[in-house]
């Protein structure tokens, strides 16, 4: 009982003290969530938002790392230069091809894999770990690894293609101007299938079992069940994943930088890798930022298009 008394005594005393400053106490309570999130937010603003703003200003300035006199305001000069920049035009075209082909292939093979894994079988856990493993391989290593696979000196692929009669000689596809883009795309597909498979598998497993049982009782065959249950349930996941993934892959320059560096003759240059090349190799920060601004505008237009599309679809439904 002794402890109990002291306990209530202290409670009494402290509450009496706190009673005198209810405003401060209220403030302390109200500020709590901000204190929890402040470190993260401050860091994001300082290391992401501030450079983003700085990058915008570079787009209108002459900023070259090796030229200490640079930094002056030059208005729209960079953008004028961009209009005549053939490499940029090519990079834009390549970006569409790169993102479109990568996403289409990743999605198709990812969906098939998800459907295969959605069926219980012996050893599914291990199989899952094995087929998802490429996702864990660092992107630079995926790039290097595939570059080596395409290299006729040590890689098997050119020899296989030659043996199958698909190519005239066991050459490196990455140095063939017409087909070089397929190299990074294949590496990207290998690396990205698990992402789609995992996401779609999760969505598949969220579909209530009894729906399939009900459909079977109603006399639907496997294909009808897929069409009338699986697809409608997956549709929202598919839509959002493809949309977001397209943006991500359009900006994903690692594989290209590692495998081809944009070559041969800028045939594999995408906008993101072009920005990096301008900044990293030519050290022309102003021009790099101008390209980045154009890329951002394009992405925003894409996002807007999606929002509008979604609204018109919702209205219809």
């Amino acid at each position: 009982m002794g402890v109990r008394n002291t306990v209530s005594m202290t409670a009494f005393v402290s509450s009496d003290r706190q009673r005198s400053t209810p405003v401060l106490r209220r403030l302390a309570v109200a500020s709590e969530p901000y204190l929890y999130s402040a470190p993260a937010v401050i860091l994001i603003v300082a290391v992401m938002l501030a450079p983003l703003a700085l990058g915008f200003s570079y787009a209108f300035r002459d900023v070259k790392l090796l030229n200490p006199l640079s930094g002056g305001f030059i208005g729209l000069d960079h953008f004028r230069a961009l209009i005549d920049d053939k490499t940029f035009a090519r990079a834009l075209k390549n970006t569409f091809f790169w993102a479109g082909a990568s996403v289409a292939l990743q999605f198709t093979f990812g969906l098939i894999l998800a459907l295969l894994l959605n069926r219980p079988f012996w050893g599914r856990g291990i199989v899952q770990a094995l087929v998802f493993l490429p996702w864990a391989v660092p992107s630079f290593l995926s790039g290097l690894n595939w570059a080596w696979m395409f290299n006729p000196v040590i890689g098997p692929i050119p020899h296989w293609l030659f043996a199958l009669g698909l190519t005239d000689a066991p050459d490196n596809i990455l140095s063939d101007p017409h087909n070089a883009m397929w190299g990074p795309i294949i590496a990207n597909v290998w690396w990205g299938i698990p992402f789609f498979a995992i996401t779609l598998l999760a969505a598949l497993q969220a579909i209530p079992r009894d729906l399939y049982e009900a459909a079977s009782i109603d006399g639907a065959n496997a294909f009808q069940r897929f069409k009338s249950i699986t697809l409608p349930f997956l549709a929202p996941t598919i839509a959002i994943t493809i949309l977001l993934r397209t943006v991500w892959i359009a900006n994903f320059a690692d594989l290209i930088v590692v495998m081809t560096n944009g070559g041969p003759a800028d045939r594999t240059q995408i906008v993101a890798s072009y920005i990096f090349t301008q900044a990293f190799r030519r050290l022309d920060f102003g021009y790099a930022s101008a390209i980045a601004v154009v890329l951002l505008v394009l992405l925003m237009a894409y996002a807007l298009l999606i929002v509008l599309l979604r609204q018109s679809l919702l209205k219809k439904a």
Partner: peptide, 19 residues
């Protein structure tokens, strides 16, 4: 703010962050 940082291409920040 956090969603925004996931949306824009990080490669944009290469030059300004270096500076």
């Amino acid at each position: 703010l956090m969603l925004l940082t996931q949306m824009f291409p990080l490669v944009m920040l290469v030059a300004p962050i270096f500076k």
